[in-house]
Each structure stands twice: as C-alpha cells, then as structure tokens.
Nucleic acid binder design. Structure first.
Length: 287
DNA sequence: ATTATGTCCTGCCAGC
DNA sequence: TGCTGGCAGGACATAA
C-alpha cells in the first residue's frame, strides 16, 4: 500500500541518512525478502557488502540505491515494507528481514516487512534517456518524473479495453498509483472507476491526469498517507494525508462536494470507493 | 497480443 | 474464550 508519495518519502530519507555510506555487514534474516535475487540470500549479502551507496532514486513504487554506474540495490516495499534507519543497539523487531550495517557505525538500516510482499535485490542498470534497474524496465514512467509524456499516456490509455481504475493500477501504463490514490484521483476527476477507457475524451483524460498529479503532489507534501503504524518514513514517522482523503475508506460518510454517502464496491477482490452522485456508474461499465 | 484472475503473506477484527 | 472467515492489496505468473 505504500504508493508513490510514501515511497518518495522513504527515498528522500535514504538520500539523507545512508547515501555516501559504505556497507559493512548484510544479514538476510528471512530468505523471502530477497526471493527475486537470483544469487539467493548468501549471494545477495556478499554482493552488497563493502559497497558504497551513491544515489537514492525512484520510479513509481520502486526505489533503488545506486552502487556505481551500472549496478544498484533495488527495493519494493510491497504492502507493509519499511526501510528504517536507527540506533544499531535498538531491539530487533520480529519483522526485520534484512539488516544492513555500515562501516562508520550508527545508524544502521533495517528492511522490515510484516506481510512479506516487499523485496530487495541486486541488479544492473540499463537505459538510454532514463537509466533504471533492469528488472523494472517494464514499469512505465510515473506522472511526476521528467520523462513522463502525457500524450503517450493518453494514447495508450484510450487504446485499452478496460475500466479506468484498472488502467490506473497497471504499472506498465502509469506507475506509482495504487488503490488509495486511484480512488482519490477518480473522485477529483469525477469519473467512475468502471468507466471504459476507450470512451474517455481528451478533456476527461486531461482532467484525470491533473487529478492524479494533484493527489500525489498533495500527499507528498503531507509526507504520505498512514492508517496505522505500517506506513512510515525511515525514522518511523507517519504522514498525515489520510486527513485529506475524500473517498478512500470513507464508505457511508458524506461526500464533501454533494453530501451523498460514499459508496464501497468490490473490485478485483479489493475495494473501490466513490461518490454515487459525482461519479455516476456508466451504462457501459467495464468491470 | 491484451486482459483478467489467482497467488503470495500476516495481523486484525467481527461474529459466533 | 477461542476459533473462523473476511479484509487489507502490489506485482507477478498463469490462464483465457
């Protein structure tokens, strides 16, 4: 559930606290945390030990720490992943999956992940105009990065034959948007989540993209959204954008525009929150 | 090829 | 009290 604003908050924290430092010891406490790394836990740990972290970068919900011009440590937080920087003497929580110490002593870095959907891996960097980790070459640019092209997005979106929310959640079309900000952006744009993408006109696509950028930017200013202690920055603090949420998690509460109670629908074994009046269901809804 | 669905995983909580 | 089932859902493998 960490989406672009939460991941960017973590990236900025890593830039501040660990970039420039050299890794001493890497301990993989749960092999699942590095399941995507072909070298396995031991290979992963050996490859990272002794390396200096150069830059902290991000695309969508992925972030990575570059080690040199063609290699990086790639991270995805999944549902509940945290990258926590702190005093090496603090107690080891039961959900710490990877423990990284540095040659200059404190603080250390702990990849903590209750639900184990997140992962870390070593990887190579590739690209021409935008260098990204090779394993995420299929992830589309996110709407706040320079190479994001609104015209390309509009063309690809309207070529789809699916519902607009499903499209927003497809990271190979536009990255960084998850269930929370998809619902929020659709409310701002006054579009129903099941609206067929091929019926969106130019103005609606423009409104949608403005709404996506708006909610992501506002959430980033607030340090991200948090419903509980799972979504935190590198020093364990929560953001407060949840106070600004208009529909997500607010079933039954009045819409702030028209006072109609917010509706919750089941969608892809998840939830879709919307205002029945501001976002009427289209006749040709695409489930 | 594109689009849809199933799967992974743990903690919490309502309901019985 | 203690169990069960539902829910939270990102990204990938697999199916259609």
């Amino acid at each position: 559930m960490p989406e672009l604003p939460e991941v960017e908050t973590v990236r900025a924290g890593l830039e501040r606290h660990v970039v420039g430092r050299t890794v001493a010891v890497v301990q993989v406490l749960h092999p699942r945390a590095v399941r995507r790394d072909p070298a396995g836990p031991a290979g992963f740990a050996a490859a990272l030990a002794g390396r200096t972290l150069k830059r902290a970068e991000r695309r969508g919900k992925y972030l990575w720490l570059t080690l040199d011009d063609d290699e990086a440590l790639l991270a995805h937080l999944g549902m509940s992943g945290q990258l926590l920087v702190g005093d090496p003497d603090r107690p080891l929580s039961p959900h710490v999956r990877v423990w990284i110490t540095f040659t200059d002593g404190s603080p250390d870095l702990r990849f903590t992940d209750q639900r184990t959907f997140g992962h870390l891996m070593m990887c190579s960097l590739r690209g021409d105009d935008r260098v990204v980790p090779e394993p995420i070459a299929h992830i589309a640019p996110d709407p706040v990065e320079a190479v994001f092209d609104p015209a390309v997005f509009a063309a690809r979106l309207t070529r789809r034959r699916t519902g607009v929310k499903r499209a927003l959640l497809d990271q190979s079309l536009i990255s960084g948007v998850g269930n929370i900000y998809a619902d929020e952006a659709l409310w701002h744009a006054r579009l129903h989540w099941a609206r067929p993408t091929e019926t969106l006109n130019r103005g609606e696509v423009s409104r949608l993209l403005d709404a996506v950028r708006g909610v992501l930017t506002e959430a980033l200013k607030a340090g991200g959204t948090s419903f509980d202690s799972l979504y935190v920055n590198v020093t364990g603090e929560s953001g407060y954008f949840d106070r600004s949420l208009q529909v997500y998690g607010r079933a039954g509460e009045p819409c702030s525009r028209c006072a109609t109670p917010i509706r919750r629908d089941s969608f892809m074994n998840r939830s879709a929150y919307s205002c029945p009046r501001c976002q009427p269901r289209p006749r040709n809804a695409h489930w």
